[in-house]
Design a protein around this nucleic acid. Structure first.
Lengths: 152, 152
DNA sequence: CGTATTATAGATATAAAGGTCCGAATATCC
DNA sequence: GGATATTCGGACCTTTATATCTATAATACG
């Protein structure tokens, strides 16, 4: 459905949203989200480039969200690493079709639009707020002192 | 959104649905649908294995649909070559989560379900019936005698 | 200033998807 | 039966996605 890279990006964003107040290093995010650290580093770079997170080098450095979780939706995260492609012209390259899609590709693009809208409508804050039996990314609910990484 | 392979499979199925009555060779389908013939051959093999189309070797052979276009939906075609994967267990492998997904993965699976349903609801016949300005796969509308390949 | 810490950049390796090729099997036509 | 057309099965190649590794630049702290 979404690429591995997009999945990793979402995990990182959700982690940062759940742990605000200070910067978090690649290693720290990687450990909790169970993502290969070296690869996560690349993904985070893309997120910085897209302006979704900010980075800080050196001691005490790491990554923080650029904006509040209720102002950030899933679609923005996906588009930063692995853009959802709408079908705008005939994939067969037929001249007569031009920008008017045939029924098949219209149907496929409708589905794409559906997903696009669905992701645009759900913010990261929605995910954090959503009541479920298990906390995102964590084995058990975070501790009161806000340091969930003490677990495991 | 969907893989290249899935796109090719759909083109082939739509082509066969639009040209019933006789078998069509790999080359014939490839030419019209603008798909590399050698690769299409592989895709068609998958469709035969899944039971969506039937093959016939030798002179006059080729491929035909196994069932009527109104009994065949897009989801079946996709699942034959590139199955849509629902998220059933926690991708992080967290024990405490088990089969109950956390909010993030619940959200992603909801989107997957949305697409799955959307594709299950549209049959190949729907696509053929849908009025649009351009005929699926073809530069111009098929001729009266039912031989659209005369074009180009 | 020197050292530890951390992101950044780029080269390289591995796996999966996409694509090609060819010989064998099967069917039709004469 | 022989010639021809066509799928089938598998080996092979190419490109892209995923992942790792190493060196470098920026920052903080003493």
């Amino acid at each position: 459905m979404i690429s591995q890279t997009a999945e990793y990006a979402l995990r990182a964003i959700v982690f940062l949203a759940m742990n605000p107040g200070r910067a978090h290093t690649t290693q720290e995010i990687a450990d909790t989200t169970k993502v290969p650290a070296a690869y996560l580093s690349k993904v985070l770079k893309s997120l910085v480039k897209a302006g979704l997170i900010q980075s800080q080098r050196g001691l005490g450095g790491g990554f923080v969200l650029s904006k509040s979780p209720d102002q950030l939706n899933i679609l923005e995260v996906l588009n930063a690493v692995d853009p959802i492609q709408r079908i705008r012209t005939c994939p067969l390259g037929l001249q007569g079709h031009g920008t008017v899609l045939c029924a098949l590709h219209k149907r496929l693009d409708d589905a794409t639009a559906l997903i696009e809208q669905s992701f645009a409508d759900s913010t990261i804050a929605d995910i954090l707020a959503r009541p479920t039996q298990s906390t995102p990314l964590y084995e058990r609910p975070p501790t009161k002192d806000g340091n969930p990484c003490a677990y495991e």
